[in-house]
Design a protein around this nucleic acid. Structure first.
Lengths: 201, 201, 201, 201
DNA sequence: TATGAATGAGGTTTCATTCAT
DNA sequence: AATGAATGAAACCTCATTCAT
C-alpha cells in the first residue's frame, strides 16, 4: 500500500516534535519535562509522538544529534567568510559572545545535560566523543594546521591539544552563563587574547 | 536524661548517608538515583534517612554545601604553602591536573548536575552564585590583587574578570574529563601557560 | 479529529469511580480507605482514577457535592407533591424514617466524616456552610414562610431558627442510626409531633 | 522487685498523656494526629507513651472512656442540685447552651469522631452502645419516670423513646456548632420548649 | 523506666508507554 | 496515522511501633 502521507510531511512532523521537545527540555530539564509537556507544547497527540519516536530517550538522542549538526553547520557557514586562520579563530570566539538570551542559555543547559546523561552511558559517551572529534576537534585542528602551514601560527604546538583547549574554554565560559552576573563578553575577550598571544607565530 | 546517642554519632550517621548519597548521585545522577538506592548502598533504612534529612532535595543541597566547603578548605590549605601570587596560581592550576580517578569525575558530574538543577530554580541559583563569589571568585581575585600589589602581576587588569576567566577554564576542562581520551594534563598545562603569560607583569 | 470517547463515556467513568469511592469511604472511612481500595472495588486502574480526579481529596469533595445535590433533588422532588406547608414538613420528617439500609447509613457516616474533616479546614467549612444555607436552611425557611403567609404556621417564630432546629433534629437522629437498636422511627415520629405542635398556628 | 515509682505517679503520667492526646486529636483529628504530635505536646518520650499504652488506638479508647465518664459525672453532679424532674430536664438542656469555646467544639468533634470510628468496628460499637444505654439513656429515662411518678410528666409516653429524642436533639445541635454562625442558644431554647410542651402533664 | 533512633510496610501520586478506536 | 484513555511500576515520603541503651 502506498504511503498515505508524503515523506516531507513526516519529516515536518518529526521536526515539530523535536522543536517542542527542545523547548520543554530547555525549560524544565530532560528528566523533569514529561511527554505530556511535549504534547501540550506541540499540540501533537501522545500516540502520534510515539509513532515518530520509540521513546522519550530517542527524542533526546535525536535532538542531540540535530543540535550538534546545526551548530556545526552554523560554525562552518560562518568560517567560510574568513580568509585566514587567525581570523577564523577570532570569529569562533566571537560567536560565543553575548548577548545570550533565555533561549541560548536553555540551549547550553540542554547540551550540558546531554553530556552528563551521556557520561553515564558508555555507548552514548562513545558516540558523543566520536562526534566531538569528528566535528569540533577536527574543525579546530584543521584551522590550526592551516595556520601553521601559512605561517600564522607557531609550528611547534600540537593542533589537537589546542583544539581541546579552545573548546574547554568555550564550554567553561558557556556554563557560567547560568549566573546572571557572569561577565561573559569580558571573559571571552580575555580568553581570545591570551589564546591568540600564545599561538601566534 | 541525656540523649540516647551522642552528637558525634549522629554526625557520623549523617555523613554516612551523605557519602552513600554522593556515590549514588555520581553513579546515576540526582534525578535517576532513588532514595532506595541510597538505602541499599548505605544499609540505612529509609525511615532513618528521613530522620536526618527532610527530603531527597535536602540531601542534595547538603552534599553540595559540604562539597563546596571541602573544596574551599583544600584550596586554601594548599595555598598556605605558597609564598607569592604567581606560585599560588600555578598551584591552583596544578590541583586540577590528572590523574582523575572515578570519584573525582563523579564529583565533577554531580557538581555540574547541581548547577543545571540550580539554573532552573532562581532561589537556588542565587545561593549558588553567592557561594561562588564568596568562596571562589573572592579567593582568586585576592591572589591577583596581591600579585598586583607586589608587582608580579600587571596592574591594569581587573582581578574579578581574571578570576572568572580562571574558573571558566577550569570548569571547562573538568567537564571534558567525562571523555576518556581527553588530554586533561596537556590542556591544563597549556591553559596555565597562556594565563600566566597574559597576566605576568 | 473528534475525541476518542464520548463525553457521556467519561461521565459514566467518573460516576463509576465516585460510586466505588463512596462504597470504600463508607466501609472504612475516608482516611482509612486507600486509593488501592478504590482500584480494587472499581476495577479501574490507579492511573485512570488520577486521570479523572486530581487527588483522593478531590474525589471526596466531588462525592460530597454530588451527594448534597442528589439529596436536594430528592427533597425538592418529593416536596413538589405536597400542597401546603404543614404537609411539606410532615413529608420531610417522613423521608428520614427507616428502614435505613446499609447504604443509607454509610451515606450518613460519610457525610458526618466530611463535616468533621471540614471543621478543621476553614475554607472547606466555609463552602460547606454556604451550601448548607443555600440548599437546606433556605429550603426549610421558605416552607415556614409560606406557612406563615397562608396562616398555617405561627407568625411570630423566626423561620431560620426553625430551619436550624429541624436540621439539627434530623442530623441528631441520623447519627444515632449507627446504633443497631436505635428506635429511629419512634424518635422521628415524636420529633415531628413536637415540632408541629410548636409551630402550628 | 518492688515498683520503683508509685502508682499515683504512674496514674499522673497516664493522665498527662491522655490530656495531650486529647488536645492533639481535637486539633487535627484522630487519624491525622500522630504519636509524635502527642510526644511534642506532652513532652513525654515516645517510648514512655508506649510503656503506658499498647497503641495509639488504645489511647483513643481510653480517652473515649474517660470522656464519657467525665461527662456523666458532670451531668449527675449538676442534676443533684435540682428538686424535680422538669427542673432537671431544663437543667440538662441548659448545660448545652453556648458559649461554646474552641475547646468545647474540639471536644464535640472528637466525640463524633469516636462514634464514626466505632460505627465501623462492631465490637467497639457494641461497647459504645452499652455505655450509652447504661449512662445516658438510663439517666434520662430515670428522670422521665420520676416525673411520671410525681405527676409532672404525661404517663403515656415511653421514657426510653424520649431519652433517645433528647440525646438525638442534643447531638444534632452539637454537631452544628462546627458552623461559626450556628445559632446554638436559640436552637437549644426552642428545642427545650417544644420538648417540655410535649411531655408536660 | 525512659529515651529517641531505627524500621519498613504502606500511603499517595506520577508518568512513560500501550492500544483500542 | 492519529487519538488520548488506560495501565501499573516505581517514586517519594510518613508514621506506628520496636528496642538497644
Amino acid at each position: 500500500m502506498a504511503p498515505i502521507v508524503s515523506d516531507s510531511y513526516k519529516e515536518k512532523k518529526r521536526k515539530e516534535i523535536l522543536d517542542s521537545a527542545f523547548v520543554c527540555f530547555a525549560q524544565k530539564g530532560f528528566q523533569i519535562a514529561t511527554v505530556d509537556d511535549i504534547v501540550q507544547h506541540s499540540g501533537i497527540s501522545k500516540g502520534a509522538i510515539y509513532n515518530y519516536f520509540k521513546s522519550k530517550d530517542e527524542i533526546f538522542l535525536e535532538l542531540m544529534k540535530a543540535s550538534t549538526e546545526a551548530t556545526y553547520e552554523k560554525l562552518t557557514g560562518e568560517l567560510g567568510k574568513c580568509t585566514n586562520s587567525i581570523d577564523k579563530i577570532i570569529h569562533l570566539f566571537d560567536m560565543y559572545l553575548s548577548p545570550k538570551d533565555r533561549e541560548d542559555i536553555g540551549n547550553i543547559v540542554v547540551h550540558d545535560e546531554f553530556k552528563l546523561h551521556a557520561s553515564r552511558h558508555p555507548e552514548l559517551l562513545e558516540k558523543l566523543n566520536q562526534r566531538r572529534h569528528e566535528y569540533f576537534i577536527q574543525l579546530f585542528s584543521q584551522i590550526i594546521k592551516e595556520g601553521q602551514h601559512s605561517g600564522e601560527i607557531k609550528k611547534d604546538l600540537k593542533p589537537e591539544i589546542y583544539a581541546n583547549v579552545f573548546w574547554s574554554m568555550i564550554d567553561g565560559a558557556m556554563i557560567q552563563t547560568i549566573y546572571p552576573d557572569f561577565p561573559c563578553n569580558n571573559v571571552i575577550n580575555e580568553m581570545r587574547e591570551m589564546f591568540l598571544r600564545k599561538i601566534k607565530a
